[in-house]
């Protein structure tokens, strides 16, 4: 098991003929992901190293039976691409595009909620998702992810930051700890999938035995996660929150990483998670070590 994606997931890449789509789409296929098609309007009939290209998501789904989409198109085109995938019945949409306006994200989210509740969006502005050994959609370097062990224990990872996600994957690999699924939810103000969505899935996934969560300043997603953990998560967790020293009022790289009006501080988030019983590390390595301790106690 894994969450959201596995070996049966069939993926199309919207924007396969573009630089990013081609590069990452081919990498994902090389990892073993079933990349069954690509979509670029006006380029039907072409192929990218054997991957057929279609004019629309609808055509691609009809021809390939795709269940997931990987969107690698510019910010202007991303909202329409997400909704096109949803309209074509795609159940899981990963959008890595950075720079989508917040107003567009809010409208897309509301539209999915109202018209396409069966579609889950991951991102925008996220590194993607990897279920090691099964499926990799997005920009994660697959080789740094440790395969889950059949006997367990395995760890699920959920993170708002790309490089810190890699850091977490890498530290688990160094310690020989298997990963069930690693989800990068992205650093934008309106992510399609939240910490809470991932925690619920990890809690229900028999292959996941413990969870690492990597948050950052801004918004209240970590506080909402802490509330959810208190009520619904029984699996042990460690966490790290980036941005303890970030100055108020400045966007720290990610559009959503901003402390404003005294809200969204790292300290507040760490306190909330500790209250929920999560072991909180003061740096990513410490969160990794805390997870190693948890895993050893489970073995």
């Amino acid at each position: 098991m894994a969450i959201f994606v596995d070996q049966n997931t069939k993926v199309i890449v919207q924007g396969l003929t573009g630089g990013q789509g081609r590069f990452h789409g081919l990498r994902n296929r090389a990892y073993g992901t079933q990349v069954v098609g690509g979509v670029t309007p006006g380029k039907a009939g072409q192929d990218v190293e054997g991957i057929p290209v279609f004019d629309s998501v609808e055509d691609a789904v009809k021809a390939t039976g795709a269940t997931a989409s990987f969107i690698a198109v510019p910010p202007k085109a991303a909202p329409a691409a997400i909704l096109e995938a949803a309209r074509a019945g795609i159940g899981f949409v990963v959008c890595i595009t950075e720079g989508v306006p917040a107003q567009d994200e809010a409208r897309v989210y509301a539209t999915l909620q109202r018209d396409y509740p069966a579609t889950r969006l991951l991102g925008p502005n996220c590194p993607g998702i990897i279920s090691p050994g099964k499926c990799n959609i997005g920009i994660t370097a697959g080789e740094i992810a440790q395969l889950p062990s059949s006997s367990g224990p395995n760890v699920g990872i959920v993170s708002r930051s790309g490089t810190l996600t890699y850091q977490a994957l890498y530290e688990l690999k160094q310690q020989g700890i298997g990963v069930s699924t690693c989800v990068g939810i992205g650093g934008d103000p309106v992510p399609g999938t939240s910490f809470v969505d991932c925690l619920a899935e990890f809690q229900a996934d028999p292959e996941t035995h413990a969870i690492i969560m990597i948050g950052e300043i801004g918004g209240s997603a970590e506080e909402e996660a802490a509330e959810f953990i208190t009520k619904h998560v029984t699996k042990p967790m460690s966490a790290y929150i980036a941005g303890v020293t970030a100055p108020a009022g400045k966007k720290m790289g990610h559009a959503g990483a901003i402390v404003s009006g005294g809200k969204g501080t790292a300290q507040g988030k760490m306190d909330a998670l500790r209250m929920a019983g999560v072991k909180v590390g003061l740096n990513p390595t410490e969160a990794g070590s805390l997870m190693a301790e948890i895993v050893h106690s489970l073995r």
């Binding site: 993170s159 708002r160 490089t163 850091q167 980036a242 400045k250 990610h254 990483a257 740096n283």
Partner: peptide, 29 residues
């Protein structure tokens, strides 16, 4: 640092060991 999260985290770690950062700089992937 490469990546916004890692850059933020670097600021934090410098602070933890008694220093202070002159800037935040993410050079991307």
């Amino acid at each position: 640092a490469n990546g916004a999260g890692l850059a933020m985290s670097t600021l934090d770690v410098v602070n933890q060991v008694g220093g202070s950062a002159a800037n935040f700089l993410d050079i991307g992937g």
